[in-house]
Amino acid sequence: MNSATADNPIDHVVEVNEVCLDFHTKDGVVSALSDIDLNIKAGEFVSFIGPSGCGKTTLMRVLADLEKPTSGSVLVNGTSPEEARKNRAYGYVFQAPALLPWRTVQDNVLLPLEIMGYDKHRQQKLAHEYLQLVNLSGFENKYPWQLSGGMQQRVSIARALSVEPQLLFMDEPFGALDEITRDHLNDQLLRLWQQTQKTVVFVTHSIPEAVFLSSRIVVMSPRPGRIIDIIDSDLPVDRTLDIRESPEFLAIAHRVRAGLAAGHSYDD
């Protein structure tokens, strides 16, 4: 990075300016996102946290061009989200593993590589490498139904990583998992982020998860979906799960909780 100032726009992987998004439903117009301003720099780990219906997933879908904003501008890698999607600039991990049941673990990881036209040799190499990274070597020829939920989600993470995107969108990837598995995968994800220097945008409704993983936490509130607070976290890079007992961790968690409470999200 050769940025002169900390906020040089060239460093911004994601730039969101005054974005609003309304859904037109039978019961009228629902404002899913209202006046969102957000910049994300390269190498950041940014979490969107908030209660259900606060628009955190919608915001990420806007960044990934799976949803079009009603107004405002969005830039991903300096281009429109659509162009970024067409340039295959990001990997996306969904709430559910979203594996194709008729493909083996290996073939599921190969799916994006096939679609993006990587040569056969490279496909095999990348699939092998990223299955190893998520500790699934030896499961290549299993089918999704033969794996546990946590393993399936790891396959979907390997699949997203296999095309080596510099930007990773993760939509509550561990939301459906038990706490022990979730802790383990949080730890693995943090190592991965540290090793690869990727930019990660992460949606969650778990405060400990957000605080543990993120370098910045975006607190959101519903009706209309808006940003309440943006919290910088300065926890040490080489943190482990033990840090969750530390005062620094608890202080940040407290501020997140306060932000969520300020959103009045539980009153109505």
Partner: peptide, 14 residues
């Protein structure tokens, strides 16, 4: 196919 799977292939710009 589930909308999520269609979205998945869209993220690959398939």
């Amino acid at each position: 196919p589930q909308p999520m799977l269609v979205d998945l292939l869209n993220t690959y710009s398939a």
